[in-house]
Design a protein around this nucleic acid. Structure first.
Length: 800
DNA sequence: GTTAACCGGATCTAGACAGCATGTC
DNA sequence: CTAGATCCGGTTAAC
């Protein structure tokens, strides 16, 4: 189909597409147009990644906007939100406006209500629905990217319920759902009353295969010799082969540098494999490439001062890299960029890279096809869908004639099994996970709280509109779980049930709007009440209430400690532990040796914790209590200015994990602060303080200073040591002192003063005060923060 | 005497969403 | 019902 023949799109679009080099639509795109995407029709498009899904979405959204409407694009990851925003901003020249809304970022300049296209994560959209964002009613088109994720047990139900709510809010809403190729696309289409576009078509051919022995066995039956040399591992052989393959036919070394993406099943494996493959890649690098890679390696070291950072930099210097969620954001971006620029030739990655931003590669190796799964009791095979998603990363549009994706077999039997299981297999069908109790807990409360259902009957009616209902024939199960959940919500004071009528309590409304799991909210409320009962009155622990479920074990030590506790004082550790034991916090894993260590810690600091220690005989609860303590200790360390390197070593985590924990804690403490107000607790001030401390990673005395934009934990500490105690003192301080404390960096100092509200922040002609002692850190540190004010060591900034 | 190769047992395990206030014309 | 790569320490073999 020629781009000139598109019905319903704005006049400028054909010209724009031609300018982009698009004359003709891909077959699946054309099929979508024939099914009416540009004319308001509902579409489910189940087509491979990189086969033009984005254009289908754009056609739908642009034609909806051309008709005077407003479009919403739902993504599963925050990283994808910014990627899509950048893509859609190309239309701003035609007068369209694009906005983004995610948990940590909202586009500035105008309300989302003014935007023609809004990009948001599914949780954010859910939250907007719960908070009655008025512009949601103006939507005429919603696009849901990666809808097959409704299959995800944790986050799938959110997407499912959100789509149902949006469609109910606006019955004429055009729904466009984009999915990977899956087993039951018709079922999705049926659920959404949509036309189905189901296609395997790809713009670049993908050849799947399995490597075994000295050959690559491809799905078309052909074999390709791929020898494994002496002590080399098969993966290394594939990588080497890919590198040689792209050297020009005439022997001339081209810059193409055939790149390989290797998927493994753990972070450690990713790092180990990258380290080994570095020696495979090194001999293939040109001098020029080596130079550029050295530069990137230096950038990587500057992101963070940790072992992970060093290991990554070492690998990158040799043209190899690893990629997983323990990396700092800066690390990830540098690796992704260097891989796209074809400087880094191999990336060994966990599934982060399969789900995240677009990083295609000449070849993909799926080295591990089993992954540890605690609930399965060992290694469980990956789903066909997941393996196909990884394989789909092979083949760079416009660069490669075709892509190759290979699994690695170590025996002939395995070779056969892999062909059966993955190469020739169709992806499994997608199944709704809505009937799981944890999911219903939060969504039922939200549904009642935001007025979508006022009675048990209405609630069940609403749930009828979900994918779950359309997939199950046994309605009884859902009804049973719903009743269990209603009982739970009522018992904990979130809902009132009167003869089938449902009403959210004030607490229930708050919990729903805060986007908390009701179980987290209950835990927090319990913790705050526990503190209120115990704090002021040491003898309180004799009350029978407290001794109930947990026996005498915890009471003895409470009695001993509590006499010393200052009633005003609610410890930060106690609050960190409280939010860490909530189901909304992903807890740290207890490693061998940790158990004893944190048991000791527990006995020392038990009095600070906001709740009775479970008995050691309740194995699971006690274990959770300890790992929450470990998590709480990490947060406490961070909020006590312990440096990154020490924390990553002490807790066995990556730099990215620290950020993740801190971010979650920040959110939960914010929610706890609101809950404290709701239940009349006096803890609000202490919670706020604890939140600001983790947010900036500072001790109490720096809370005010670190609140100044451009001042993070390190600069705040230096200013404090120079005798500047807070924001007011910073404004009044002598400029030479400020400049010296900021290690003589004029631009930084000017920015800091300006942000602190100084009338005349200019540092012109000011010399650093020589009497101010500033301890220098590692020699490398100096290079870090040169010019721009938002640089590196301001780790508290949620940079985007 | 030192280093390399080998062996066996212990260890460890993917990912990542969300509040609120604020601002603007 | 189900694992396997890596790491670490100790031993032996090789030089």
């Amino acid at each position: 189909m020629d781009v000139a023949d598109l019905p319903g799109v704005p006049d400028w679009l054909p010209g724009h597409l031609r300018a982009e080099g698009i004359e003709e639509l891909y077959p699946p795109q054309a099929e979508a147009v024939e099914s009416g995407v540009t004319e308001g029709g509902n579409i489910v498009a189940a087509i491979p990644t990189a086969s033009g899904k984005t254009l289908v979405a754009e056609l739908a959204m642009l034609s909806a906007v051309a008709r005077g409407g407003k479009a919403l694009y739902i993504v599963p990851l925050r990283a994808l939100a910014s990627e899509k925003q950048a893509e859609f901003e190309q239309f701003e020249q035609y007068g369209l406006s694009v906005g983004v809304s995610t948990g940590n970022y909202e586009s500035d300049g105008g309300w989302l209500g003014d935007k023609d296209i809004v990009v948001a994560t599914s949780e954010k959209v859910d939250s907007l629905v719960r908070n009655d964002a008025p512009w949601l009613e103006d939507l005429t088109c919603v696009v849901s990217d990666e809808v097959h994720l409704v299959d995800d047990g944790q986050r799938g139900p959110t997407l499912e319920v959100t789509l149902a709510k949006l469609r109910r809010l606006n019955p004429d809403l055009q729904t466009v759902a984009l999915s990977a190729t899956i087993g039951n696309a018709e079922e999705l289409a049926e659920w959404l009353d949509a036309e189905l576009v189901d296609s395997d078509w790809r713009p670049i051919e993908l050849q799947k295969g399995v490597h075994y022995g000295q050959a690559l066995h491809l799905e078309d039956g052909s074999q390709q010799r791929l020898a494994v040399q002496n002590s080399e591992k098969p993966t290394a052989a594939v990588v080497r082969d890919t590198l040689q393959d792209d050297h020009g036919e005439d022997g001339e070394v081209t810059e193409e540098g055939g790149s390989t993406l290797v998927f493994v099943n753990s972070r450690r494996n990713a790092e180990a494999a990258a380290g080994r493959l570095a020696s495979t890649v090194r001999p293939h690098l040109s001098g020029d490439e080596k130079g550029q890679l050295e530069g990137i390696a230096a950038d990587i070291r500057d992101v963070s001062d940790t072992e992970t950072s060093d290991d990554l930099a070492d690998a990158v210097a040799d043209g190899a890299a690893f990629h997983h969620a323990g990396l700092a954001r800066g690390h990830r971006e540098l690796v992704e960029q260097a891989f796209q620029d074809r400087l880094v030739k191999v990336v060994c990655a966990t599934p982060t890279l399969a789900a995240g931003v677009n990083t295609p590669s000449r070849r993909v190796v799926v080295r591990d096809w089993r992954r540890y799964d605690g609930s399965a009791g060992g290694m469980a095979p990956l789903s066909v869908l997941e393996v196909h998603q990884m394989m789909g990363r092979a083949g760079r549009p416009g660069l490669d004639p075709y892509g190759e994706a290979v699994l690695v077999a170590s025996s002939h039997d395995e070779l056969d099994e892999l062909f059966e299981r993955y190469v020739w297999a169709d992806p499994e069908p997608v199944r709704s996970k809505l009937a799981a109790e944890p999911a219903l807990r939060t969504h039922i409360l939200a549904t009642v709280s935001s007025g979508f259902a006022r009675s048990r009957t209405e609630l069940l009616e609403f749930l009828e509109q979900t994918l779950y209902a359309s997939q199950t024939d046994q309605g009884g199960r859902l009804e049973r779980v719903v009743d269990d959940v209603l009982t739970y919500l009522e018992r904990n004071g979130f809902l009132e049930v009167n003869a089938g009528e449902l009403d959210a309590t004030s607490l229930g409304h708050t919990v729903s709007r805060l986007y908390l799991d009701p179980m987290s909210a209950a835990e927090i409320v319990d913790g705050l009440e526990y503190w209120a009962r115990h704090a002021g009155e040491p003898e309180a622990s004799d009350e029978p209430v407290d001794a109930t479920a947990d026996g005498a074990f915890s009471t003895a030590s409470e009695l001993a400690e509590e006499t010393e506790a200052d009633p005003e004082d609610i410890s930060a550790l106690g609050l960190y532990h409280l939010v860490s034991r909530t189901p909304d916090m992903y807890q740290l894993y207890l490693r061998s040796g940790d158990r004893e260590e944190y048991e000791m810690e527990l006995y020392e600091r038990e009095a600070e914790l906001l709740g009775p220690t479970p008995s050691e005989f309740e194995d699971e609860r006690f274990e959770d209590w300890l790992s929450a303590l470990k998590t709480a200790r990490l947060l406490e360390d961070w909020a006590s200015e312990v440096d990154e390197e020490t924390i990553t070593e002490r807790y066995g985590v990556g730099p990215g994990d620290i950020r993740g924990k801190v971010e979650t804690a920040q959110w939960l403490l914010g929610a706890a602060e609101s809950l404290a107000g709701e239940v009349d607790s006096d803890a609000a001030r202490a919670i706020s303080q604890a939140r600001i401390r983790v947010e900036h990673g500072v001790r109490e005395e720096l809370v005010d200073l670190a609140g100044v934009r451009g001042v993070g934990r390190k600069r705040a500490r230096r200013l404090f040591e120079a005798g500047i105690g807070d924001r007011a003192e910073l404004r009044d301080a002598a400029k030479p002192v400020v400049l010296a404390a900021l290690r003589g960096r004029r631009k930084t100092a000017e920015n800091v003063l300006e942000n602190a509200g100084h009338r005349n922040p200019s540092m012109e002609g000011v010399e650093p005060d020589p009497d101010v002692e500033v301890h220098e850190e590692s020699p490398r540190d100096g290079e870090e923060e040169d010019d721009d004010e938002t640089s590196d060591d301001q780790s508290s900034l949620g940079d985007f």
